[in-house]
């Protein structure tokens, strides 16, 4: 699954560590999500979307 987390994080002026801290996950988890290696759980996806003030569909995109 693709996602816009790197772009949204950069636009928010957050580092990966800062985003990890706000989401209460490890920095490795943020890195994995940004690289598309790890698909977050629905609760974490909601937290990410809410943190950036977006809907889940605006942050995560299904590969077609």
């Amino acid at each position: 699954m693709r996602n816009s987390v790197p772009e949204l994080r950069a636009a928010a002026g957050l580092t990966q560590s800062e985003l990890a801290q706000r989401l209460e996950v490890s920095r490795q988890t943020v890195i994995s999500i940004e690289r598309g290696r790890y698909d977050p759980s629905l609760p974490l996806a909601f937290r990410i979307a809410r943190l950036f003030g977006r809907t889940i569909e605006e942050v995560f995109h299904v590969d077609d």
Binding site: E24, V25, S26, Q28, T29, Y38, S41, L44
Partner: peptide
């Protein structure tokens, strides 16, 4: 102190 990726 593991998160959901650690558990995965």
């Amino acid at each position: 102190r593991g998160d959901e990726r650690d558990r995965a």
